[in-house]
């Protein structure tokens, strides 16, 4: 029956969890393409038959209906194929934003050749864009020193609060923040600091987040 494999393809992608990439079904895709090819050829043949002289009115109507049916099946197959590839591409793009430019080998094996190519192109484009954004207007473009990249992939969600309350757990001494402020950290102090500043201090166990 027409369209069965295409529906199966879509169903399979749907069954996988939202951001997982199931292996690329090259076999099915090829099968569907062959099916479409067959349909197309059958339609061409019928077209020739339709143009033949002396064809009965009833037969002509029958042939027309058959052609219409095949055509619908073909466009349905086409839609399924596009949806399949488009959805895989979306998932692949999310991978780029969440995992970065290098795909883990486990995922790499599930990709088709074209997809790998697309991924590397997309990755390149994104990197270029990030460099463009970060470029300062007065920077000399001829000077290729350590290119500044504004990493857009980090902090994609706005923080709930920019400043958080922290308690100091150990005597630390002076700590210099990124904007040049010196903060003296002593045990039992309570401070309000920018979240970005104290994230790693919290991880080191110097600060504790107070709710």
């Amino acid at each position: 029956m027409f369209g069965q494999r295409a529906a199966e393809l879509i169903r399979e992608l749907e069954r996988a969890s939202d951001d997982a990439l199931p292996p690329y079904k090259a076999e099915s895709v090829r099968g569907i393409c062959e099916e479409m090819q067959g349909i197309f050829e059958a339609n061409c043949r019928d077209r020739v038959n339709l143009d033949a002289d002396g064809i009965e009115q009833a037969t002509a109507v029958k042939i027309q209906h058959a052609m219409h049916f095949r055509d619908t099946a073909m466009s349905r197959n086409k839609r399924c194929l596009i949806a399949y590839h488009y959805n895989r591409m979306e998932r692949l793009r999310n991978l780029r934003w969440s995992l970065g430019g290098i795909i883990p080998t486990a995922i790499r094996q599930t990709l088709s050749e074209k997809e790998t190519e697309w991924f590397s192109n997309y990755s390149k484009a994104l990197t270029n864009y990030m460099m463009d954004v970060a470029e300062l207007p007065d920077q000399d473009p001829a000077d290729p020193q350590d290119p500044v990249v504004l990493d857009l992939t980090v902090h994609q969600r706005p923080p709930k609060e920019y400043f958080i309350d922290v308690k100091v757990l150990v005597d630390y001494g002076n700590y210099e923040t990124q904007d040049g402020e010196t903060i003296f950290l002593k045990k039992h102090m309570r401070l309000c600091m920018a979240r970005t500043e104290c994230e790693h201090l919290i991880r080191q166990g110097i600060l504790q987040h107070v709710q």
Binding site: Y162, F163, F184, M189, R190, L191, C192, M193
Partner: peptide, 9 residues
């Protein structure tokens, strides 16, 4: 009001 402080007891 996002006023930064250090509190010492």
């Amino acid at each position: 009001d996002h006023i930064q402080y250090s509190l010492t007891v």
